[in-house]
Design a protein around this nucleic acid. Structure first.
Lengths: 205, 205, 205, 205
DNA sequence: CATGAATGAGAATTCATTCAT
DNA sequence: GATGAATGAATTCTCATTCAT
């Protein structure tokens, strides 16, 4: 039943196939509502097979997060290459961050929303990795804000405080949009743009 | 096993005891990871008893949110009595909101952070109630922003969009401060004030 | 909720009110699917109250059966008063029996279909009563058949064997119609009449 | 507790083991009073295991019925090969049916007696299957009756109605003999023969 | 590398019933 | 006579996971 044909998908490494399926399902149904069996069915392998590639369900999620955080970092890295216009760079960076959250709400939740206590287990290798890469991502923000200040695009604000405040605001929209579907939000992009512009205006020299 | 002693809290209404226990557990372990049985064990009653007070698990969550929102609404109502200086009123309002969250992180998390969205089933009575009171709370913000615009303290921004953006930002700090203790935050009040001022500056006429 | 108003029903004895409600519910939903609470809600009393009048759920059912069997016996008794035309009397008697079963399928099931083992507990007073009244009912059939033979309306068949065979046939339609809703039966009355006439024809002198 | 030894019946397909245990329990205690756990305990497997072989409890019941009906169909098929004397064929067919029930009372009860009707959900695959095979079995009876009429052995009765009436009668004896051991029946074969002859006489041309 | 079979633990929920009042 | 509060036991069913192969 099901795990027979394994329709002609390109020979991606199975590990990646699993990750992709899991991501898709977590996204559609939420981490807690996706069972290993569902993932297995989706990819037409047996549940057992997943355990050959991932220690357990949490591991799967962490790998997913790591993967996606890497993408975020890459996107940030690309962005901060070109710092000719640091304000625009910040603008774009925030967009990227927020959209990243909206696209992978479950990874976002795990990484930025949930209390780490019951998902992360400090001390585990994968946890350290996630923490590190997460810090790395924040570094870009700090960098860009610093550049804005250095180039007098922004008032002479405290870089750390400002970066944290900006992150907070960006996290705010992201998480609310993710968690509160039922609220009568104005058009999503309008909201996001408005917030970003407010922040930038509030910092302009 | 356990349901024998029921330490000296017999007087508190059982309903409230359940709500408190549920909130605490939902927070520590996440809504999906808390079973009715766990709640029952916590309060040293049988699982069945919970069903005498709440229709089901979702009902429990909704009641929890409702409770929190009611308190918040009360605080806002007091504030918006005096609108002489609407900008200051907004400032204070945001402070109130954020501090409310920091003071009652449990309530805040359950209401604004956890909120598994498959839990909302439009059409159910309790859903409408929560939606209504949530709308009521947000209404205060909208009111104040509108007043700021009307009195030309703010640019001619769209009131709804702006209100949502402000709420987002406020929620951002609140939730990050609550959930990410481990992050090397700058001094809490400094961060909060900085964010609030940024927002206000970004809106000034 | 619910047990407050107890709408203006005539002051039947509560016991009877419970019996009537239970009969109705058992009928509509089946014995196993009716909870004491459902019955209580129906009559707008508390579940506890039912236990003031009936030992337990099985007791309730037995009382119901007894009540209805009494009616059956009464109907038979009335019928067998007038034996001018014993064949017609048999015809009517079978009709009464079958329709009784179709009208009170749960009582019928308990009394005639289910293996007594797990519902009846020989030795209990109520069980003996039901057995006795059941035997009483069969007696009428025996009586009528005997009369048909005596008056040469029927061939010289063995009365006991014939009575048992007739009962078997009547029980057959009744129980199949009750238990096999899904079968594409011809019109119910047509089937019943046809069977009865077949039986009678098969016995005619 | 218990699921350790799994006495020497490892070879029988587990699926069949489950079916047998379920049949036995459904019979002794009634479908509604048998839990998946009870079945599991009986066979000394975990409840979960049952779900590897059957979708749910209803599925189990349906498979049980299907199994029984298949056997009956086979027996009928053999019989209706030779239709030289259709009346005699009917006689034999009824005998086969009744004796089948008496020989395998467990199968018979589950299929024809218990059958909680809320269990049938038209539209489900298994339901259609059961309906089909049930129809198939009944088809033999219809066939034979039709032949009796066609060859003027019987009056010009409605074939469908007559077939249903005959089945009803046959079911009647079978089920009463199975379920009501305690009744003072005349000699079993005498009763059966008497009923069959009555039916046939009642139909003769 | 992959799986089929199996399981222990636990999920939400409902039930018949009792007890103190 | 009636009830509100409470419960132990049971229900169906799902889950993450493991083990022998």
């Amino acid at each position: 039943m099901g795990s027979k044909e394994r329709r002609g998908r390109e020979k991606k490494e199975l590990r990646q196939v699993i990750l992709d399926a899991a991501r898709e399902l977590f996204l559609k149904q939420g981490y807690e509502n996706v069972s290993m069996r569902k993932i297995a069915n989706q990819i037409e392998y047996s549940p057992t097979t997943i355990y050959l590639h991932f220690k357990d369900k949490v591991d799967l999620l962490h790998c997913l997060c790591h993967e996606t955080l890497s993408q975020l970092v890459k996107a940030f890295a690309a962005l901060s290459q070109d710092m000719k216009d640091p304000v625009n760079c910040l603008r774009k960076g925030l967009r990227v961050y927020i959209e990243f959250g909206l696209k992978y709400p479950d990874h976002y939740k795990v990484t930025f929303i949930l209390h780490p206590d019951h998902v992360d287990q400090p001390g585990q290798e994968i946890y350290e990795q996630t923490a590190a890469i997460s810090e790395e991502a924040f570094g870009f923000l700090r960098l860009i804000v610093a550049e804005c200040v250095r180039r007098k695009k922004f008032r002479k604000v405290d870089v750390e405080t400002t970066s944290q405040a900006i992150w907070s605001a960006a996290h705010g929209v992201t998480s609310l949009l993710i968690a509160h579907h039922e609220f009568p939000w104005v058009e999503k992009n309008k909201l996001i743009d408005h917030l970003i512009e407010m922040l930038i205006k509030g910092l302009k020299a």
